[in-house]
Write a protein that binds this DNA or RNA. Structure first.
Lengths: 244, 244
DNA sequence: CGCTATCTTGACAATCTTCAAGGCCTGTGG
DNA sequence: CCACAGGCCTTGAAGATTGTCAAGATAGCG
């Protein structure tokens, strides 16, 4: 296990919640400051090293997770090792809804991650007292569903070029402070991108080179891109532009 | 518009709800019989002809839908006509969660469909009085999310053979009364299947022929299959068997 | 009974994968 | 401080799965 539990168990983590990076934009903010103690009492803070897994496909789904800080990838595996990333999560994201009795996916940290772990059972009972939290979760699930449908369109019908352009476009959209011409850091490897887009590493690499050569992006380092022409990138992503 | 509103507006549809095919296994059964009148008052029953659309991608997302009877397909379109089916819905299924301000997908009836249409705004207020309904919706969203992740794996990493086998397997799983050797009716066309699996009509057709020739299925008519070897079909779907 | 949809099958083409090799970057240890 | 090792990324050539184009078969419907 790569779990490293920190912080005092039980009470006293109240303050930690109030200062949490995720508090402002996660499900937690459905709860008023005065009620946070109750929530904190249910959470276990877990630190995960970069590359460490904290949800394992097939395990009993006993917990929900909220990402307090960091980035992680979600994926499914086939028996022969083929892998499909189903999404990325970031600070504030909630995790574990898409599960029956067992987790149907794995989660692995891309950089050092801190997650709040909640017992599924206990959290459900919390919903009775804080219905706003449940509503928040429903919103989160709706957003995930929306993203999943877009990804199905990407995987089922888009060309490699369109997939990579779509990916870069959405990454840029997630960093609102990053404007055209700014460096956009990519926290995942080419292999992760490939498994997210249903392509091979080689095709991702070749396609990014092609986008660079056509002037749409620059690649200052292999873990950074700068988008030179946002409009063109979007046209490519949407299939409005045929070729270039 | 293919809408054909039926039934008296306002009150008096109480009984209709109580006898609805969907009542037993839809979100509606989170509501007690005595409270159904309130729910019925909010619903508009809509009859949709086979082939008729009742949700249009891009339209303002003003309604939720519950399928009272029939089958429908959900899909997204690209500007050049490429289509990706994101799922099928059946009697009892709830629709419209995966939407922001506008619908991000379209819905079209596969056979004559009856849906209950609810105003999004009014339904949300109903949640305050019937929290069980919201919980039910969250469960439904979780299931949809689970299915979406499986579909991403299928679209991103499975071969044509594996995709078709997966599809037939899940269709069979949806008809619990249909056992090995029984005829399984397919309510969708080859084109729908192709757009659901991210393939072309030709590839679906060829692949089904190949499965037939290898003895895994029979195809008594183009809209029916019988699964001759459930275990083999599952092995193919999971990629456990390489070729045949 | 023929018309039109849909489905099947065949030949060829193209995108993407596979296999292979070389370069780059980082971190570690001498 | 530099050399080396291992990952990760890039690039090339060949191959395969799937798509495209085309024609014929089957079936449902007026």
């Amino acid at each position: 296990m790569v779990f490293v539990a920190t912080g005092p168990p039980g009470n006293g983590r109240h303050a930690e919640c109030l200062s949490c990076d995720a508090r402002s934009h996660s499900v937690c903010n459905a709860i008023k400051n005065k009620d946070v103690a109750r929530l904190a009492g249910l959470a276990t803070v877990v630190e995960v090293k970069a590359g460490g897994g904290f949800i394992h496909e097939g395990d009993a789904a006993e917990h929900f997770f909220n990402v307090a800080h960091g980035d992680a990838k979600l994926y499914k595996l086939m028996s022969d090792g083929r892998r499909q990333l189903t999404g990325f999560v970031r600070t504030g994201d909630f995790l574990g809804l898409a599960a029956g009795k067992n987790y149907s996916f794995s989660a692995e940290a891309l950089d050092p991650v801190r997650v709040c772990r909640f017992s599924r059972k206990k959290l459900t009972s919390l919903f009775d007292d804080f219905p706003a939290m449940e509503r928040r979760l429903l919103e989160a699930a709706s957003n995930d569903l929306l993203a999943a449908q877009n990804q199905m369109l990407l995987l089922g019908r888009k060309t490699a070029r369109e997939r990579v352009a779509s990916f870069l476009g959405s990454q840029a959209a997630l960093a609102p402070s990053c404007h055209q011409g700014d460096r956009l850091p990519l926290s995942m490897t080419r292999g992760d991108i490939a498994d997210y887009l249903g392509l091979t590493i080689e095709t991702v690499s070749r396609t990014m080179t092609a986008l660079r050569k056509s002037g749409v992006i620059k690649i200052p380092s292999s873990s950074e891109v700068t988008i030179q022409d946002t409009a063109a990138l979007k046209s490519i992503a949407d299939g409005t532009i045929a070729l270039d």
